[in-house]
């Protein structure tokens, strides 16, 4: 399924001053029982949202769409539901100084931009957002910049993911362009490699 191309996005920045935000915190397992791909916004940060002081419970940040998080964001479980929950809530961008590999990969597949920037820059953004709650951040994927007021920061995203996001390309469609090469690889696989079918007697 093709994605909506991502070029620039402007939205309210949300400071999440925590490190090691694992995917169990982003969405607890109990919300993973659904068989649909949408409607996960109620599970986003479910445990923390019971706390009235949690950032998303503050009026200025409630409609945020650019999450500015501490290091090691998205660690733990491979659940893509974490990305769906962020997107369903309204987030289009997460900025952090370090992302877990699987989370970053899942984000790229779903059109959620995971931009990596230095921890110093993250802390500067936190300060700007604390001083002006509800301030917006403009993220420009072509330029790899995040702008808050007059402050301009750069972020990293690998070129291939950036290209796919900007074009809104579907990975499966891209891969199936190379079906003949997959056929050729399969024809050369050793015969002793295991198979799950037919069922052994």
């Amino acid at each position: 399924m093709a994605l909506e191309p991502f070029t620039t996005h402007t939205g309210v920045g949300v400071p999440l001053r925590r490190s090691n935000v694992d995917t169990d915190q982003i969405i607890p397992a109990v919300y993973l029982k659904r068989v649909t791909k949408t409607g996960f916004e109620d599970g986003l940060f479910a445990a923390w949202r019971n706390d009235p002081t949690f950032v998303l419970n503050q009026d200025a940040f409630r409609n945020g769409s650019v999450l500015v998080a501490g290091p090691d964001f998205g660690t733990g479980s491979s659940r893509e539901h974490a990305v769906w929950a962020l997107k369903d809530y309204g987030f289009r961008v997460v900025l952090s100084s370090r992302f877990a590999d699987i989370f970053r990969g899942n984000s790229g597949k779903q059109g959620l931009l995971a931009g990596q920037m230095s921890q110093d820059d993250i802390e500067q953004l936190w300060k700007l957002l604390d001083n002006d709650p509800g301030a917006t951040i403009t993220v420009d994927l072509a330029e790899k910049t995040a702008t808050c007021g007059t402050a301009v920061f750069t972020f990293q995203v690998d070129d291939y993911t950036r290209w796919r996001l900007m074009e809104g390309l579907d990975d499966i469609g891209l891969t199936l362009r190379h079906e003949a090469e997959i056929d050729a690889f399969e024809a050369a696989r050793p015969s002793w490699k295991p198979a799950t079918l037919p069922v052994l007697s």
């Binding site: 893509e80 539901h81 990305v83 699987i102 990969g105 899942n106 597949k109 990975d171 499966i172």
Partner: peptide
Amino acid sequence: GIGTSEVEH
């Protein structure tokens, strides 16, 4: 480990 988009892939 992979995400659900990769499972589909």
